[in-house]
Simulated scan of single mutants.
Amino acid sequence: MELRNEEEILEAKGVDISLKDLSNKLEEFAKARDWEKYHSPRNLLLAMVGEVGELSEIFQWRGEVDKGLPNWKESDKEHLGEELSDVLLYLIRLADICGIDLGDAAARKIVKNAIKYPPKVMF
Rank of each mutant, 00 (worst) to 15 (best):
L88C: 12
A107K: 11
K67D: 14
S75M: 05
I110D: 04
K112E: 15
R108F: 02
A106T: 08
L88W: 05
I100M: 12
K13A: 15
C98A: 13
A107L: 08
R33F: 14
F29G: 00
I115Y: 08
Y90D: 04
L102C: 09
E8R: 02
G14S: 08
W72K: 03
D66I: 00
Y117L: 09
Q60R: 15
L69S: 05
M1H: 10
D21Q: 15
A12H: 14
W72M: 04
A30H: 15
D16N: 06
L88P: 02
N43V: 01
E6D: 09
D34W: 00
G68M: 02
L89N: 15
R42Y: 11
D86K: 03
C98I: 05
D34S: 12
A47F: 08
L69H: 13
I58M: 03
L84C: 15
K37E: 14
W61L: 03
A95K: 05
I97P: 04
K25N: 05
L84R: 05
S56H: 12
E83I: 00
D21Y: 04
G103W: 10
L80M: 12
K31V: 14
A95Y: 06
M1Y: 05
L26S: 11
I9D: 00
A32C: 03
H39I: 00
A107Q: 10
P41Q: 04
L88R: 06
K67F: 14
E2N: 04
L88F: 10
L10T: 07
P119N: 06
I115P: 01
K112T: 07
A47Y: 03
D34H: 10
E36M: 14
G14A: 06
E64A: 08
L26F: 07
W72E: 08
L44S: 12
C98T: 03
E2D: 03
K116G: 06
N71G: 02
D16A: 10
V111P: 00
K25Q: 13
D96A: 10
R42M: 04
I9F: 14
E78K: 07
